[in-house]
Structure formats: C-alpha cells, structure tokens
C-alpha cells in the first residue's frame, strides 16, 4: 500500500488536508451565516493544527509564529469580528438561497479533480513527502472562488476570500514548509486590513442600498 511509506505524522498531515477540504465543502453547503462563520473558524483551527504539526515534526520553529498568527487571526479575531458584524447588521437568521445545492457540490468535486490534474506536473518539483497536498490546497482556493461566485450575500463572499487565503497558506506550509517570515507577516497584515475594510464596506453598502445583496449593486441608481 502506498500510504504505508509515510510516517504517522505525515499521514496525520494528509488527514488534516482532507479535513480542510471537507470544511471547504461544508462552507459551500451551509446556508446559515453564523454556522458558516463557525465552519470558517474551524478551518482556521485545522490550518493552525497543520502548522503546529509540521513545526514540531520537522523542527521548523519559525512556523510556530505563523501558527500563532493563524490562531489569533483566523480562529479568533476575524470570525468574532464577522460574527459581531452579522449580529449588528441583524442578518443572523437570514437563510441564504443557493441556486442548486447539489449541482454546486458536484461542481466542487469537479474542481477537486481539475486541480489534481493541473497540479500533477508541479508535484514533481517538490521532494517532500507531503507534496500530494498541493492539489488539495489548489482545490481549497478554487472552492473559495466557487463560494464567492455562487452566493449573493457580501458576508459570504468575504468568507470565501478568506477561505482562498487559507488554501494559499496551507499550500505554503505543507508543500514548502512555510514562506519567508516577511511574506507571511505581510499576508497576515493584508488579511487583517481586508477584514476591517470589508466591515466598513458592509456598513456603507447597507446604508446605500439597504441590503447586503450584491446583485443589487449592478443596478444603476439615479442621482437627483
């Protein structure tokens, strides 16, 4: 059997990768905003666990800082911020209508297949045992994009954006054992700023259009 060539820690990393992919699918299937945010926090938690595992298994101690940033930002700060926003805007109980849930899920599965084939040549470049996870991270990024285009509510689109970023981080950590610290800090700061800016935008969109439905942004407004 092929998986037997990996050590137990590597098998655990692969399992965490599969679980992250699963949370992406859960995000796609979820129609309630608060649960969506909780699943996003769970995905952040899985990312943090992967980072910790790699840091300890391979002795890459600079990854501990990255894990701490992930824990602070993606498990606590951004979800709590989004949750506050949702409570404040009073869209907690809103059940979002997705077009055809099963079709979107099948599309997601097709994306996973696509990313598997797209990544096959890239996989050859890496010498690490966990290089199989590159396909999964690409799939997470694409699933985040699918989440953005298949939903109408602005909050979900922010979650989709963050999910894409999770996929990027996961690729960096599992395939190359982390990016340079400067890049990582920069990305973290970007996400932080994006989260805050999105919050401000939500309020603006809300006061301007009376709804967070982005379809309504297409309509031209007459200025008196």
């Amino acid at each position: 059997m092929d998986i037997a060539v990996f050590t137990l820690a590597e098998q655990l990393i692969l399992t965490l990768a599969a679980l992250m992919l699963f949370t992406s699918f859960l995000l796609l299937a979820q129609t309630r905003l608060l649960t969506l945010i909780h699943i996003f926090a769970l995905q952040g938690g899985l990312l943090c666990a992967t980072t910790l595992l790699i840091a300890f298994t391979y002795g890459r101690h600079h990854l501990l800082i990255s894990a701490a940033i992930t824990l602070g930002l993606k498990v606590f700060f951004i979800p709590i911020q989004l949750q506050k926003l949702v409570t404040h805007l009073d869209i907690k109980r809103e059940v979002e209508v997705v077009g055809h849930p099963s079709l979107i899920m099948l599309g997601g599965a097709a994306l996973v297949l696509f990313s598997y084939y797209a990544v096959l040549p890239i996989r050859e470049l890496s010498m690490l045992a966990t290089r199989n996870t590159i396909a999964v991270s690409l799939a997470i990024i694409l699933l985040g994009m699918l989440l953005i285009i298949s939903r109408r509510k602005a909050v979900v689109q922010v979650v989709g954006f963050m999910c894409m970023e999770n996929g990027l981080m996961f690729a960096a950590i599992s395939a190359t054992h982390g990016m340079p610290m400067v890049v990582e800090l920069g990305v973290a700061l970007d996400v932080l700023v994006a989260a805050i800016l999105f919050g401000i935008f939500f309020f603006q969109i809300r006061t301007e259009f009376g709804s967070l439905d982005v379809d309504k942004l297409n309509r031209l407004k007459e200025v008196d």
């Binding site: 060539v5 599969a18 297949l113 199989n132």
Partner: peptide, 12 residues
Amino acid sequence: LGMLSHVVLEVH
C-alpha cells in the same frame, strides 16, 4: 470526497 482523497492523497 473519500474516493478523491484516496486518489489525490494516498496514491503516490
């Protein structure tokens, strides 16, 4: 997903 993760992750 189980089948995909078998193909993507477990087969070398």
